[in-house]
Simulated scan of single mutants.
Amino acid sequence: MSTGTNRFMDEFARLMTDAAGAAQGMRKEVEQAFHAQAERWLNGLDVVRREEFDVVREMAVKALEENEALKARIETLEARLNSPATPTEG
């Protein structure tokens, strides 16, 4: 009787293993289909990818820093022009 039980348990274990493998495969297929559909939907919204956003953000930060440096230079030059130590014409 124990051989029949062992055989039944072996068959049951194999069936469960096959079912788990099939479920894993289905999960991957559903996940891939979802990602493909989400990408199509996002492309329709005309949104940018994270990498593109990061590049533009870095460009904006650099431009802001350059603007701040130029502003400081202008203020220094204006201070020199307006200081009484500079000779005036006349």
Rank of each mutant, 00 (worst) to 15 (best):
A60M: 10
K28M: 10
G25N: 15
A13C: 04
E58M: 10
R14D: 09
E39A: 09
R27G: 13
V30W: 06
A72Q: 01
K62F: 02
Q24K: 10
R27P: 00
L81R: 06
F34M: 02
K62G: 09
A36H: 02
G4D: 10
E66R: 01
A60V: 09
E66W: 00
A36F: 00
A79F: 00
E51C: 03
R40P: 01
D18S: 10
E51S: 02
M16V: 15
A63W: 04
A36P: 02
E65K: 01
A33N: 05
Q37D: 08
A13Q: 13
L45F: 07
M1I: 13
I74P: 06
P87N: 03
T76Q: 14
L15T: 12
A19T: 12
S2R: 10
W41D: 14
T76K: 13
G44N: 04
L64E: 12
L81Y: 07
R7L: 10
I74M: 08
T86R: 15
A13R: 13
E51M: 00
M9P: 01
N67V: 13
T3K: 09
A85I: 06
G25D: 15
R50H: 11
N6Y: 13
M26D: 14
P84R: 03
T76V: 08
M9A: 13
P87T: 00
L42N: 12
D46E: 14
A20E: 15
I74L: 13
E31W: 11
S2C: 06
A23Q: 03
K62H: 03
A20W: 07
S83W: 03
Q37A: 14
A69L: 06
E39Q: 08
A19N: 02
N67D: 13
L77C: 01
A69G: 07
A36D: 11
A85Y: 04
D18V: 03
E65W: 05
E66T: 01
R40H: 11
F34R: 11
A36W: 04
E29D: 14
H35F: 11
E78R: 14
I74K: 07
A63D: 05
E52G: 01
E75Y: 05
M59K: 13
T76W: 09
V30R: 05
T17V: 09
T5A: 15
Q37L: 11
A63E: 04
R57L: 04
E51P: 00
L42I: 11
R80M: 10
R14G: 03
G90Y: 06
S83E: 05
T86M: 14
A72E: 07
L70K: 10
E58K: 08
V56D: 00
N6V: 11
Q24R: 07
L42D: 12
E78F: 06
E65P: 05
E29N: 12
T3V: 15
R27W: 03
R14Q: 12
L45M: 10
E39R: 09
V56C: 03
M9L: 15
E39W: 08
V55T: 11
N6R: 15
N67G: 14
T88E: 08
M9K: 14
R57I: 02
K62C: 02
T17Q: 11
V55D: 11
T88K: 14
E31S: 11
T3D: 15
E51I: 04
A69C: 00
A38Q: 15
A60K: 03
Q24D: 14
W41P: 01
A19L: 11
D18T: 04
D54E: 15
V56H: 03
G90Q: 07
V55A: 08
E31I: 12
R7F: 01
